[in-house]
Amino acid sequence: MKKNIEPCYYGDYLQLDKILGAQHLQSEKYGSPAHEETLFIIVHQVYELWFKQVLHELNSVIDTFSQNQVRDQELITVVHRLHRIIQIQQLMNDQISVMETMTPQQFLSFRDYLVPASGFQSIQFKRLEISLGLKREYRIDFDKQSFYNRLEERDRALLENLEQKPSLFELVDQWLCRMPLLKKDDFDFLDHYEKATSELLEADKQTIENNPTLSDKERYQELKDWQATRENFDALFDEQKYVALRGEGKFRLSHKAMLSALFIKQYAEEPIFNLPFQLITALTEIDEKLTIWRYRHAMMVQRMLGTKIGTGGSSGHHYLKKTTESNRIFLDFFNMATFLLPKDMLPELPPSIKRYLGFYLSDEGK
């Protein structure tokens, strides 16, 4: 291990003079300093530091998936770094509790001095969203319209350039499409899966029709919901139907990527699929933590401002609440549970398939 030649001093290494001297209160410019403004600044500065680390991890993952091939060793590192992001997200979610020690009146003592500054202008958070896959076309209308108009030109140019690059969602979709799954030799997963799901859905329909506790109105609604589920299942076996539903926003993954992810989830206990399964699970959890962060942020804003507008001009709590469910990225991985079958209904993978996949996904097969 190499050693330093010059001594390293703690404060100099961390540049604490810069960090600890970076809290400048707006309220001081107009009168007495507001005590709680220091907390407000530090909490948001800490968020930005964590955003920087998350982007550092996320960019390394994107670089890995930008390759034509992703080896198992690289996938181990990817999953590890995604888990680190998840732990950072948990810290950021917990940090909201510190902000909530501030009362609404304490916040109002300096809030108006911040206009028109807003979380809209966190370039790192926007980079994080775009890099994950939340590009402008997937945002709710207000967010889509105001996404860039509160930014300085250099920041707008940076984000618009990032929008043109493949996001992690897009790269993972392409990676899933490249996996050699589903059908080989005498093994046809989709054929077996279609028969099994038909039996399962028909049994569900019979349960609804023969349930004596349901009123006619309730039975009608449940059968209507059953039909919608049936159509989603049918789309798995008909690419044209799937593309049509995807165009309506019911799916975001491509047809082949959806089938590959479903196959991985169904056979997650197989060693060859364990790392891909961990990857899918980690991306699901990142989306969940981000949704929780949005929700807690929305609740905190409602607690502080009620129905007042935000400092950036949005509808405040109402806007943040809408983004909680609308600005999702890996929602398909959540909804995939709809299509999972019980283990006893799955065909066992033939030894030839296991050998083939093991060879294909190994270094020798590449």
Rank of each mutant, 00 (worst) to 15 (best):
T311A: 01
F333A: 03
F51S: 04
Q240M: 11
L114C: 01
L39F: 01
I130N: 07
L305R: 04
E153P: 12
Q105K: 00
L200P: 09
G11T: 10
K322R: 11
Y193C: 08
L181R: 06
W50S: 03
D188I: 12
L279P: 02
L259N: 12
E285V: 15
T38P: 00
L55N: 12
I123A: 06
E199P: 10
K321F: 15
P116A: 03
I272P: 00
L162M: 12
H318I: 09
A228C: 09
I353L: 12
T291Y: 02
L223K: 08
E231C: 05
I88N: 05
T284Q: 10
V78P: 08
R71Y: 14
R81C: 08
R303C: 09
S131K: 07
S109E: 04
V98T: 13
L279S: 00
Q105F: 02
M304Y: 10
G11Q: 10
G312T: 11
R219L: 00
Q145A: 15
D238H: 14
H80P: 03
F339Q: 10
T311C: 01
Q73M: 08
T77C: 12
E269K: 14
Q121H: 11
A244P: 03
T64V: 15
Q124K: 06
C8Q: 15
V243E: 14
I292N: 13
Q89K: 11
K29W: 10
L331S: 03
Q278T: 05
N149C: 13
R246T: 12
L20M: 08
N232W: 01
F125S: 08
T64C: 06
S362K: 01
F107M: 12
S27A: 05
Y360V: 12
L151G: 02
R219Q: 05
F359V: 08
A257R: 07
K224F: 06
K184Y: 10
E288F: 05
N211T: 12
Y30G: 01
M345C: 11
K308S: 05
F273N: 11
Q90R: 02
L158A: 14
L162G: 06
L14R: 00
Q145C: 07
Y30C: 00
D191P: 04
F120W: 04
K322M: 07
N149E: 11
Q174N: 03
I85M: 15
D17A: 13
I62M: 10
D72N: 05
Q174K: 02
I292Q: 15
L176K: 09
S97L: 09
L214H: 06
V243K: 07
S97D: 10
D188S: 11
S122M: 01
K250W: 01
P350E: 07
T291E: 15
Q67F: 12
E137C: 01
P351H: 00
L49F: 13
